[in-house]
Amino acid sequence: MAAPTNEEGPASEPGAAPYGNFPNYSRFHPPEGRLRLLPEGLLRQLFPSDARPLLGLDVGCNSGELSVALYRHLLGLQEGKGSPEQPADGKDLHLLCCDIDPVLIERAQQSSPFPNSISFANLDIMDSSSREPFLTSYLSRFGRSTFDISFCMSVTMWIHLNHGDRGLVEFLAFLSSQCRYLLIEPQPWKCYRAAARRLRKLGRNDFDHFRSLAINGDMAERITQILTRDCTMELVCCFGSTSWDRSLLLFKSNGSNHDGREPSEQQQ
């Protein structure tokens, strides 16, 4: 997936964001719509005995509003109260957030209230030649080989539309290999039709793969099938659906090398 360029057209047009890189995304899908579904103390529940810093990966972070809100929520931090770098939930979280749009990443970097704990990076997650060395380099700073938890919020449709069925499966396989837990919010099929319709209204070519997608229908169920059947993950729970009809699904890896340490550390 090539990085967006100015040739894509005016970013203020919803249909002019064929990678989901909407410039004002949080205005029409505010973070609170997801956060209200997530229980307090989630990190304590998932990682009760982990004393070391937890590592998180947020794929498709846009301009960072949801990333920052997730960070606050997961650590029990209230906006404007207490030291922003002191977690109130007894956990320490370092969050790496990436997006394909460099303009959105620059905005996120400039406005982040947690520069020591949240990193924003311009990255095409479907470019294996750049993603793997970049993520490996980040993890190695902590002596780790995988992330503790990854977030994929309303990203799967854009991967699917731009890379087809094979690209979606590859993306889910890669993401599941990188983390112990995965919190994912798939877009329903009606969103695919709406995205294609917006492009047509602007007089643009349809998504290359839209009409040939064999993975369709109930996308939350189809993605669950891929993750549990092909990616050695199990569905832990569904936290419910947002007001815009998207489910928040939490998966856990059944893989053998997901404690996050480097192999040499595991053998000691």
Rank of each mutant, 00 (worst) to 15 (best):
H160C: 04
P23G: 03
K190M: 09
G41V: 12
S145L: 03
S253I: 09
K252Q: 10
T5E: 01
D206H: 10
N24C: 11
P10A: 04
K190Y: 11
S128W: 10
F239M: 09
F151I: 03
L235F: 03
N162Q: 03
I215V: 15
M157R: 11
N162T: 11
F22H: 14
T146D: 05
W244Q: 13
D218S: 04
F171A: 06
R261D: 08
G255D: 00
I125G: 00
E106R: 14
A173D: 03
A220N: 01
I105D: 00
P84S: 08
L248F: 01
D50S: 15
N116L: 13
L199A: 07
R166K: 14
N254L: 12
D230F: 01
D245N: 14
T156S: 15
A195N: 02
S130D: 12
P30G: 06
P53Y: 12
S129F: 08
F22M: 07
D124Q: 03
R261I: 11
L77T: 05
M219N: 14
D245S: 14
G260R: 00
A194C: 03
L43Y: 12
P48Q: 08
R131I: 09
I100W: 02
H94T: 07
S154G: 07
A69R: 04
P30L: 08
M219F: 04
R131G: 04
I100T: 00
L250C: 05
F47I: 09
S145Q: 07
F22Y: 08
R27N: 08
G20W: 04
D218F: 01
D206S: 14
G15C: 05
L183N: 03
G217R: 05
A195W: 02
L54D: 10
R180Q: 08
P102H: 00
N21C: 10
E13K: 05
S177W: 01
L123R: 02
K201N: 09
E262P: 09
P53E: 13
G20V: 07
E85G: 13
S128M: 10
C191D: 15
L172H: 00
D99V: 01
L213Q: 08
E221D: 11
S83W: 07
C237V: 06
S176T: 01
E185T: 10
R34I: 06
F142D: 11
Q178L: 15
F239L: 14
H29F: 03
